[in-house]
Design a protein around this nucleic acid. Structure first.
Lengths: 157, 157
DNA sequence: ACTACTATGTATAACCC
DNA sequence: TGGGTTATACATAGTAG
């Protein structure tokens, strides 16, 4: 057989999925490489493989790596003094931005957790429920919610 | 004329380069989206447009921390190479942080909207519903969700 | 800048080792 | 598990409106 169109959803067959993953991952890396060289921009892509192992891919110019790496390190490491004035100015701006960033990231985490919980409650993520225990528990929760709503309806009508 | 093969190097014509950038950037986003859904993995791509404009891309669940951790592994010699020009280095760091910040803020907005929607669906924010029309609509939505869950239960039990 | 088109280059699903 | 082949699906360079 030859190539067929595939549906945009998780490939159920695991070995197939693995093969597809490798191919498409490689293709993606190539694409990003082309984009950055053709258009002279910085860019990176990071893909985390299915499970257990942490890092996956790193398809971008090393300088980007370095910049972000520095970001992670403590700001104290700036010993050498070249243009001091400008440096301290820039340094302040950086720490300001870092702090703001960190705050936003934290906020994101909280929001994400809430969202996931709520998605469960609305049945959006039902695909992930496999054991009947989970489903039953959810059912109870939902019943509570339903009661809340019907009460509200009664109150209004 | 029709499509020609192009050399893998910076496109000299600026307007052409811009167009190509947009097309390929969009293509890349699509690809990463497909990869993550087809193979069930996490992934992200970040493209920094040319200096003047900030917009870049963030196609998927960003785990910035993980990304940053990854950068500890960058080779020493390249680090040294890069420290030469501190000013440029700091300047880039700033623009990158700004971009990251902007991204996170945008993401926050999106998450917040989703959360509110979901809270409506779960009945948490029912206080705000005043007209019976809204309630009825919500009721319908909920019934759909309930069916989804009961179906799931039937399938499992 | 933005669609839309189209011819062509490129990526890749299914097979085969 | 990994690499190679092939036919097809998809991406996109060039162009026009």
């Amino acid at each position: 057989m030859t190539r067929r169109k595939i549906k945009q959803e998780l490939i159920s067959n695991e070995s197939k999925r693995k093969v597809t993953f490798k191919k498409r991952k490689d293709g993606l890396l190539k694409k990003i490489d082309e984009l950055t060289t053709l258009c002279g921009v910085m860019g990176c892509a990071i893909i985390y493989g299915t499970f257990n192992n942490r890092p996956e891919i790193w398809p971008s110019p090393p300088e980007l790596t370095l910049v972000l790496d520095r970001f992670k390190e403590s700001p104290e490491e700036e010993k050498d003094k070249y243009t001091v004035d400008q440096k301290t100015f820039l340094g302040r701006r950086i720490s300001m931005l870092s702090n703001a960033l960190e705050r936003e990231i934290k906020k994101n985490r909280g929001l994400e957790v809430d969202l996931i919980l709520n998605e469960y409650l609305t049945g959006k993520s039902m695909e992930d429920l496999t054991c009947s225990e989970d489903v039953k528990e959810l059912d109870l929760l939902l019943e509570e919610k339903i009661k809340l709503i019907t009460d509200k309806i009664v109150a209004i009508v």
